[in-house]
Computed example of a mutant assay.
Amino acid sequence: MSESILAITGPTSGIGRETVKALANQFSSILLLCRNLVKATALKQELLKKNVQLNVTIIECDLSNLSSVRKAAKTIQTQFDHIDCLINNAGMVATSRKDSTDGYELMMATNYLGPFLLTHELLPLVMNSDRKQIIVVSSGAYKFVPMKRPFFSPKHFDPITGYGRSKLGTLYLAQELHEMYSAKGLKTTAVHPGMVSTNIGKDNVSKKVGDIIFGLLDPLFVTAEEGAQAVISAVEHPEVYGGVYSHEGKVIAVKKHGSDFVMRREFIDATLEELDLQAL
């Protein structure tokens, strides 16, 4: 296949933006899956200024809304017959309890359920490509807490627990993809880019609180450009990072509950049932 296609969620800011800019010359077409179409249009123009031959397609996709995810996937399926690399990058943090349109805790919906459904819908296109690569941007926050029922709408909300479990879910997704499809050529990597200074979470607190919290934390963060390097390395070196967990570019083993096969199986099965899917 002559046309190489990259699809990425959350490309308009932070890690996603830096990743797209760095990889723009390595693919002939880029699909920008995002909520903010104004930012996406500006990014498209910026990419085309650097590479006039690049094909850039904007796909509206709100990962917290399953209908939006299905619509976005359908749009892609009708326009493209393959995707060489899918990067599940988008994510969010909420400091107070919010529910998605579909009634799920918002972080679990945005960080896990939406990407799971999108991956399921686009997987045939990925498997129809020469490259066959999926990058899941996870987080070291998976270490905060093990998975626990009820998975998708917890009775008690805690931002650290909620975020940690949503990211543990993404780690389980990457492991499941590797286990089920690596023998068929799929190269999957779960990436923790480090503590990256981005806008994630800043829109979910008041400006005063946000300025205090992020002002204290910013010295501990790396820049979005630095954080994107772990994602870029995983894309560029599938023979090194395929089937592993990358922590800031270093291949490391995951903690005990991050490799709990029994819980992963229970969680994935519950996800399939919730989304009315037969298999990933």
Rank of each mutant, 00 (worst) to 15 (best):
V191E: 04
L118M: 03
K155L: 15
S139N: 12
G162K: 06
S153Q: 10
N204S: 14
I200Y: 01
F144C: 11
D158R: 04
K207E: 11
Y163I: 06
L106V: 15
V145G: 14
T170K: 10
H120V: 01
V196G: 08
K184R: 10
K202E: 08
G164Y: 03
E176I: 00
M195N: 14
L177Q: 07
M180Y: 11
L171A: 08
F116Y: 12
D203S: 08
T161V: 15
P154V: 15
V205F: 09
G140Q: 12
L173Q: 10
D102P: 03
Q175D: 10
N128R: 08
L177T: 03
D130P: 10
K167R: 06
H192F: 05
Y112R: 05
A109Q: 04
D203F: 04
G103T: 14
S139D: 03
K202V: 08
A183N: 14
R131V: 15
M147A: 07
K155E: 15
L186G: 07
E121A: 00
M147R: 01
S182W: 00
P154S: 11
T161P: 08
Q133C: 02
F116K: 10
S182G: 01
R165L: 08
K202I: 04
G162E: 06
A141D: 02
M147H: 07
F116C: 01
L123H: 09
M107L: 13
S138I: 00
I134V: 14
T119W: 11
